[in-house]
């Protein structure tokens, strides 16, 4: 359950920014979570609900998560695959220079408040 420590960092970052912007109440926080990032969205939401309820700024806030599937690309021939088709040995040329180009994200994209 490392999601709790992650949410603590998310709330700290949004709180710091919101204070600078003069925002007192946050309504939505939008995040992108990659499927290879070892983060479980339902656990993230639950942690957000529990930790958010401890701070009036986040009392009514919801967490919107955009899940980003893993996407790989072969550095030798440019072959790409996504989700369950992703492999780390190229299916076209057999090359091993296959890199993850998305699916490892864990970002706070934006938030809304007043």
């Amino acid at each position: 359950m490392h999601e709790f420590s992650l949410v603590r960092e998310v709330l700290d970052a949004v709180r710091e920014s919101a204070r600078r912007e003069g925002i007192r109440r946050v309504s939505t926080v939008e995040m992108t979570v990659g499927s290879m990032g070892c983060v479980f969205p339902p656990a993230l939401r639950q942690a957000f609900e529990i930790l958010g309820s401890e701070d009036p700024m986040f009392e009514d806030a919801t967490l919107a998560i955009e899940e980003s599937p893993v996407r790989v690309r072969c550095g030798d021939c440019g072959w790409e695959a996504e989700g369950a088709d992703a492999r780390f040995l190229c299916e076209e040329c057999g090359g091993t220079d296959v890199k993850v180009i998305s699916g490892e994200e864990l970002t706070i994209d934006s938030y809304e408040g007043e």
């Binding site: 309504s27 970002t107 706070i108």
Partner: peptide, 22 residues
């Protein structure tokens, strides 16, 4: 329902990576 009391809702783009502190 949340009563926003007619105040302006602001959207702030953060684009911040979590775990930067780590």
């Amino acid at each position: 329902m949340i009563d926003w009391g007619g105040e302006i809702v602001i959207k702030v783009r953060l684009m911040k990576k979590v775990m930067e502190n780590n």
